[in-house]
Amino acid sequence: MTGVFGDVADLYDDVRPDYPTALADLIHDYHGGTPDTVTEIGAGTGKGTAVLLRLGAPVTCVEPDPRMAARLTATFPQVHAVTSTFERWQPPTGGVPLLACALAWHWLDPATRNARAHDALTPGGTLAVFGHEYGYADPAQARAVDTTLRAIDPTATRRRADWFHHDITASDLFTDVRADTLHRDLPLSTDRYLRLLQTFGPYRQRTAEQQTRAATAMRTLVDDFGGTVVLRLRTTLVLARRPRTSRS
Rank of each mutant, 00 (worst) to 15 (best):
F5C: 12
D36H: 12
R247D: 06
A111T: 15
G3P: 09
V15I: 15
G135E: 03
D29G: 05
G227M: 13
T39D: 00
Y193E: 02
T93R: 08
T212C: 03
G46K: 04
G124K: 12
V15K: 14
D153C: 10
A208N: 11
R150I: 02
W89S: 11
D29E: 15
A137M: 04
A74E: 15
D172N: 15
D7T: 14
D25V: 10
G201H: 11
T122D: 11
F164V: 01
Y134L: 04
G48A: 07
I41C: 03
R195Y: 09
A117W: 09
L173E: 01
A240V: 10
R213A: 15
G201C: 11
M218I: 04
A69C: 10
L239S: 12
P77C: 13
T212L: 08
A100F: 04
T126S: 12
R213E: 14
T49A: 06
T157N: 06
P139Y: 13
G201T: 14
T93G: 07
T216W: 09
R234W: 10
F76W: 15
T147M: 00
Y30P: 00
K47S: 02
V238K: 01
S84A: 12
S189M: 12
G135A: 06
W89I: 11
T181A: 10
D223P: 05
P97C: 13
H118E: 10
L127Y: 10
T60S: 06
T83C: 15
W107M: 01
R54W: 11
R242F: 00
A74N: 09
T45Q: 04
T207K: 08
S84F: 01
G33R: 06
Q210H: 14
A69I: 06
Y30C: 02
R159V: 02
P110M: 07
P202E: 03
P243G: 06
S84V: 03
A102W: 05
R88I: 06
R159T: 03
P243F: 01
Y19Q: 09
R206H: 15
E133R: 08
R247N: 07
I168F: 06
R143K: 13
A43S: 14
G125T: 09
D191V: 12
D185G: 07
A115I: 12
R16V: 01
H31K: 06
Q198N: 05
T216N: 10
A115M: 12
A179W: 00
P64L: 11
D185H: 13
D7M: 07
G33V: 07
V59R: 03
T49D: 05
D224W: 05
R206K: 14
R88Q: 15
T85Q: 01
M1F: 09
F130P: 08
L72A: 03
I27C: 02
T85I: 02
A74I: 04
L121K: 05
R234L: 11
D65R: 07
W89G: 12
T220W: 05
E87G: 01
A115L: 14
A50P: 00
R244I: 03
V230W: 03
A170F: 05
R67E: 06
D119C: 12
L173W: 01
G56D: 05
A142M: 03
T228P: 02
L23T: 01
F130H: 07
